[in-house]
Nucleic acid binder design. Sequence first.
DNA 1: TCTGGGGTCCTAGGACCC
DNA 2: TCTGGGGTCCTAGGACCC
Length: 497
Amino acid sequence: MTTTVAGSCDTSPEGRAGLGRTTRAGLPVESRGIGLSPLSTNVTAVRAHASVLHLDLDAFFAAVEQRDKPSLRGKPVVVGGTGGRGVVSTASYEARAYGVRSAMSTREARARCPHAAYLSGRFEAYRSASAAVMAVLRDCSPLVEPLSLDEAFVDLAEAGLPDLEVPTVTALAEELRARVHEVTGGLTASVGVASSKFLAKIASDLRKPDGLVVVEPGTELALLRPLHVSVIPGVGPATVERLRRAGVHTVAELERISQEELVRLVGKAQGHSLFHLARAEDDRPVVPDRETKSVSVEGTYETDLTDRQQMSAIVTRQAGEVARRLKGNGLSGRTVSIKVRLYDFTTLSRSSTLPAPTDDPATIARLARTLLEDLDTSGGVRLLGVGVSGLADWIQEDLFAAAGDEPAEEAAQETPVDQRAEPDQAGARWRSATWAPGMDVVHAEHGRGWVWGSGRGVVTVRFETADTPPGPVRSFRADDPDLERWRPPEEEQPEAQ
DNA sequence: TCTGGGGTCCTAGGACCC
DNA sequence: TCTGGGGTCCTAGGACCC
């Protein structure tokens, strides 16, 4: 590391602009795969420089335990579910020597390594260590994309470096690893730097633990071709098996398959992705804050549940927890789902979509219980879960409170979905101007009329009945006192035309 | 007593609308 | 008159990631 590069870690206010960011929802980012989807249809420019960095903390949960408990250092440590149906979350390298792996059942881990320390995990400690690491990364570049507590991409093109040549980014990567070690009290990180997310992620895996690999631009394919297809993120057991049957094991072999054949083998989206990734084509940007899409709570029980009343009580409690987390992050959602895993591991899901978003525990619980009622659980249930998706950051209660109506969810729930209106000209205009990306037009019945709502701190309303054409669309900032006064009275009804 | 919990994304079929 | 295509939304299930 050189002084020049060390100094290039921008500590100016501008450089720290992203410090302390969370997702839009303010949720701690816990899990996000890089998957295969975000490749654009026409993958064109691959970066000319190795300016994407991927950092991965080594055996993160176990390493935090060893850091905080010196007696565990140098010994096998397994963090995960410790009950009869638990699985391994993280195994220290000492435990990996005995064949203990992530996602293995704790039962099997105990058989392989009986003398390891089995711990259930201290997520506050992990979150805190993670936050310190992310702060170091954001100190370096405003473009940091956390994938989970222990992983992130950093766009070095925004790091204010004098250049992006290999010696410069190598020195910066070493500096970052040293700073991570420093701020976490001794945790090590493996880092990959390359011309794309895909290659950076693969590179960070090559010299674990505590390693650094910088892929020199132009050498990507030479690095990739000999590797097994399973190194490609998004290629799991099912895809490996399909490819194996087609005689494909390595990336080099994958490269020889036509795009049409790949689509036939693994489907449209994954086929196109694999076709490009096999050629090291990946132009996905580093995206600093991605929006939360769903919130869920689930639990696996030590013995199978058979009592319907008990299941109903569990689902009610889980709905409350989901609602609490939604509310805590200013979110609400329209689709309520339940997940049921039967005694034989058959997994069922059922969902139902409300006309307007909710964060109300009673509404979510009621719907979840109704969905559960329609399932045959007589053989026993090992897992139950409740989730809400179709999230908006607009909460319907605001709108109803503004319209001076009774509690929202009753009316909302009774509004048949098939009465949902499409945006008219004015609605469409609002949609493009102020509506959150991906957010649907929502409405709910209000007296004899209709109320329309939007997010992003803006509420859009209009009055309409079965007998009259739609009234003018009015919009208010959510904190506008005029919104409180807005009513859909008779005199505001437009004349029939 | 095999097989967690929190997520993301994709697929496929049906409904519905234009 | 007959057949149809595209787009969007919803639901259920599955693959995958950490």
